Simulated assay, not measured.
Amino acid sequence: MTANTTDDANRSDTDTPLDLSIEVTCDACRKTATFQVNHDRYTAWRERRMLMQDAFPHLSAPDREYLKSRVCRDCWTAMFGPNPFAD
């Protein structure tokens, strides 16, 4: 499964290149997704020099959670219930 959360039509020429593929496997169900991110921003996030939402603004909140916690959206919902703040 590839996470297609980047909308190329909404990206500008000044956006950082998405030059790193990160494959994440859900620890609960073993489903795999691949996310395209910027290498420098990924490194900054891993080294705690950049907030996740600033490093990966092109990823949805559930995709950022998947990358951080290694739990996919379906398993997260099964564990904790639906997001009470979702629209």
Results as ranks from 00 to 15, higher is better:
A3W: 01
N4I: 00
N4A: 04
N4C: 01
D7W: 09
D8W: 15
A9F: 09
A9E: 12
A9N: 08
A9D: 12
R11P: 04
S12G: 09
D13E: 12
D13M: 08
D15Q: 07
P17D: 09
L18I: 02
L18D: 02
L20W: 04
I22V: 08
I22L: 10
E23Y: 03
E23T: 07
T25D: 02
T25F: 01
C26M: 09
D27H: 13
D27T: 12
A28F: 05
C29M: 10
K31C: 07
Q36S: 14
H39T: 12
A44P: 12
A44F: 14
A44G: 13
A44T: 08
A44L: 15
W45H: 10
R46M: 14
R48A: 10
R49W: 08
Q53H: 14
P57K: 14
H58Y: 11
L59I: 01
A61I: 13
A61M: 14
P62I: 06
P62Y: 12
E65I: 01
L67N: 00
S69N: 13
R70Y: 02
V71M: 04
V71T: 07
V71S: 02
V71Y: 00
C72Q: 06
R73S: 01
D74F: 02
C75D: 04
T77E: 13
A78S: 01
A78H: 03
A78D: 06
M79Q: 12
P84V: 03
F85L: 15
D87E: 09
